[in-house]
Design a protein around this nucleic acid. Structure first.
Lengths: 188, 188
DNA sequence: GTCCGCTCGTAACGGTCGTTACGGTAACAC
DNA sequence: GTGTTACCGTAACGACCGTTACGAGCGGAC
């Protein structure tokens, strides 16, 4: 069943957010999901496939959230701003997502398939930002647009990584205004 | 001996850069250092202390490199630019450092002491950027300076994290020009 | 009612982990 | 030369890991 795989992937997120990569074991996921390792190993071929599915599902949900954020505004600059703010983890609940993201990134360092999934997802996000930035500043040369889009992505993901470990130094208000400033600067 | 602890910490970096957090075992570190687990456990009380020492040493070396970068220029804007470029991992050799940084960040999610060390180090870096930015734009209100400094730090660390996993999408030239643009925008 | 196939909990296996205990050995005082 | 001490390699222990094997339970086909 596919809904069970999704439920298990959500358990993976929960474990990663709470216990980090070290605490991510098949047993911990099973306990979090309220089942035993038997179900986990029945739904997935192994631990690696469990991680990859959770990573892919995370991206699918994020992409859907970005689509909704885009549709929530009309002005090009407002659309870009809405997507970037959505990518940033500004609420405490979303901060768990940032911890999960860092865990996936660290896991990708030793797993080529996870690294490939990460690259695909991040490149899709870069293309989205490039497209939105192209609407905001149509006269911007392609090369400059590529640089500025990557800068915006790095800013947001950097905030995510840093706020996951130190939310006091990187509160939501600071992230929000820094993102707004960066969007304004990129549009010039 | 203290030089042995440094040598072991360098072995920790090497293992983290090459095999990630999963490959970080006491045995792997010993093999990389050309010794056995006996020496490792004699030099450190346990695996956790080994990680913490490697993290602290990484910060000390980075701080020294930042001091040197600051001293390499006279103009305030140039100093800020030099420090931020030093913080970014632009050469292939430095990219290992970014992978190590991501691994430490992920490990800090489950280890409060590692998280504390990370926060201390990152806050020190934020203060450094704030101080340099204050020289570049003395009239900037304190609150705005705090926001812009954190934005610069997030940009650089975001580039590090993203380039560690996908150096093709985030080449050195792109990072460098994005950082230069951001410094210019922050100085206004 | 009976059989079958699917689901998933249970138990165990081999392996690797962090850590501990112990012994060999080299350097040094005398 | 001999005793002492600190260093560190060796081996092993208990714990926990991913994975496998197996069987109980159960709904559907006929």
């Amino acid at each position: 069943m596919d809904s069970q795989r999704e439920m298990l992937s959500e358990a993976v997120w929960s474990v990663l957010a709470e216990q980090g990569l070290d605490g991510f074991t098949v047993r911990a996921v099973a306990e979090r999901a309220g089942c035993t390792t038997g179900l986990v190993m029945h739904a997935f071929a192994g631990k690696r496939e469990l991680l990859v599915h959770a990573r892919r599902l995370l991206h699918e949900r994020a992409a859907a959230a970005f689509d909704a954020a885009e549709a929530s505004a009309d002005a090009p600059a407002e659309r870009l701003r809405a997507v970037l703010r959505r990518a940033a983890c500004l609420t405490p609940a979303e901060r768990d997502g940032a911890r999960v993201w860092v865990a996936f990134l660290a896991a990708a360092a030793a797993d080529e398939e996870l690294a490939r999934v990460h690259r695909e997802n991040n490149r899709a996000f870069v293309r989205r930002v490039e497209r939105l930035l192209g609407r905001v500043a149509p006269d911007l040369p392609r090369a400059q647009r590529a640089v500025r889009a990557r800068g915006l992505v790095a800013l947001v993901e950097g905030f995510n990584a840093l706020a996951a470990a130190d939310p006091t130094t990187y509160p939501a208000r600071t992230q929000g205004t820094a993102i707004d400033d960066a969007v304004r600067a990129a549009a010039l």
